[in-house]
Amino acid sequence: MCLESETKSEEETRSRRAVQRAIGVQLQARSDIDAQHELERRRDFLCRVMQESGQTTLVLGISGGVDSTVAGRLAQLAVEKQREQGEQGRFIAMRLPYGEQQDADDADKALAFIQPDEVLDVNIKSASDTLLESLENGGMTFDDVHQRDFVLGNVKARQRMVAQYAVAGARGGLVIGTDQAAEALMGFFTKYGDGACDVAPLTGLSKRQVRLLGQELGAPDALVNKAPTADLESLAPQKLDEVALGVSYEEIDDFLENREVSERAFDTILTTYRRTEHKRRLPIAPD
């Protein structure tokens, strides 16, 4: 009986690891990276996309987190390389607060580090609130204040992308996304909000690998090691991602990098991955 139980446990473990590997491959995750090589590869990727698309500008919203800090610096390095090669290239960083941003100092630190060619400051509060008010005037109702706040959070994310695409459209630009493998795995982004972009230079990186690139770039430690927060819920400002996800980034990264994770973490991650599959797909069309 003990032997049968041990064999069954080993089979279950192998099965879980196989699922981990398959998902990691799908999300282009890797166990180990060379930080300097990845920085150069992803910078050159941005250059190549600009050249192939004929667009001359990169646009990105800077929140003050490590993802937008790393992506923003990569964008600036890419356009500087373009100019060194005699090509046109310009990076526009956007501040996109909703009212008063509680961690505005972090966004300022990020911009000081990135040194973008241009900074636009666009407050999305009025546009977001007006849209929600118009929905309610049109007959939209909510179950409670928490559901209303959740919907408003997604409206904020989509208003930010509307603003970035307005700038990109006016300046011949491409919108950069900050999605990395950890957020992709958990579906932790707003569909057609921060999940909408033209180019995603952080694709395939775990959260700890993004931090590693930030360290290699020389970003401030306070930004590299900052506890991540989407900060979309007005009723729960600065709510940590890990609280919302129910699992730590350490466990998410271990899952992506094909390292051993607890059964609880595995089940939470896999359930969330399957539940958010629609976010990672193109619009569903008839067969």
Rank of each mutant, 00 (worst) to 15 (best):
G172Q: 06
G173F: 04
G173T: 01
L174A: 04
V175N: 05
V175T: 09
I176K: 05
I176D: 04
I176W: 04
G177R: 02
G177F: 03
T178V: 15
T178F: 11
D179Q: 15
Q180R: 15
Q180Y: 15
A181L: 07
A181W: 03
E183P: 04
A184C: 13
A184D: 13
A184Q: 14
L185N: 02
M186I: 11
M186D: 11
F188N: 11
T190I: 05
T190Y: 08
T190P: 02
K191D: 08
K191E: 13
K191G: 10
Y192N: 13
Y192H: 14
G193Y: 04
D194A: 09
A196W: 07
V199C: 02
V199Y: 05
P201N: 01
P201M: 05
P201W: 04
L202M: 11
T203P: 06
T203I: 14
G204D: 03
L205C: 02
S206F: 10
S206Q: 00
R208K: 11
Q209I: 10
Q209Y: 03
Q209S: 10
V210T: 08
L212G: 01
L212M: 13
L212D: 02
L212F: 08
L213D: 07
L213I: 07
L213F: 00
G214F: 06
G214R: 02
Q215V: 13
E216L: 07
E216W: 00
E216Y: 02
L217Y: 00
G218T: 05
G218E: 01
G218A: 05
A219G: 01
A219D: 04
A219Y: 00
D221K: 09
D221I: 09
D221Y: 00
A222V: 13
A222W: 02
V224Q: 00
N225P: 00
K226E: 04
A227Q: 07
P228V: 09
P228A: 08
T229Y: 00
T229L: 03
T229V: 09
D231R: 01
D231C: 06
D231T: 01
L232W: 09
S234D: 15
S234F: 10
P237S: 05
P237N: 07
Q238V: 09
Q238T: 08
L240K: 13
L240V: 14
L240P: 12
D241P: 01
D241C: 03
V243N: 14
A244S: 15
L245Q: 05
L245T: 08
L245K: 02
V247P: 03
S248Y: 03
Y249W: 07
Y249T: 03
Y249V: 04
E250M: 10
E250L: 09
E251T: 12
I252G: 07
I252P: 03
I252N: 09
I252Y: 02
D253R: 09
D253Q: 10
D253V: 10
D254W: 08
F255L: 02
E257K: 11
N258T: 14
N258K: 14
N258C: 14
R259P: 06
R259G: 06
R259F: 10
E260G: 05
E260S: 13
E260M: 07
V261H: 04
S262N: 05
E263K: 12
R264Y: 15
R264N: 15
A265Y: 06
F266R: 04
F266D: 08
D267N: 11
T268K: 12
T268P: 01
T272F: 08
T272P: 03
Y273K: 03
R275L: 12
R275Q: 15
R275D: 15
T276M: 12
T276H: 00
E277Q: 13
E277N: 09
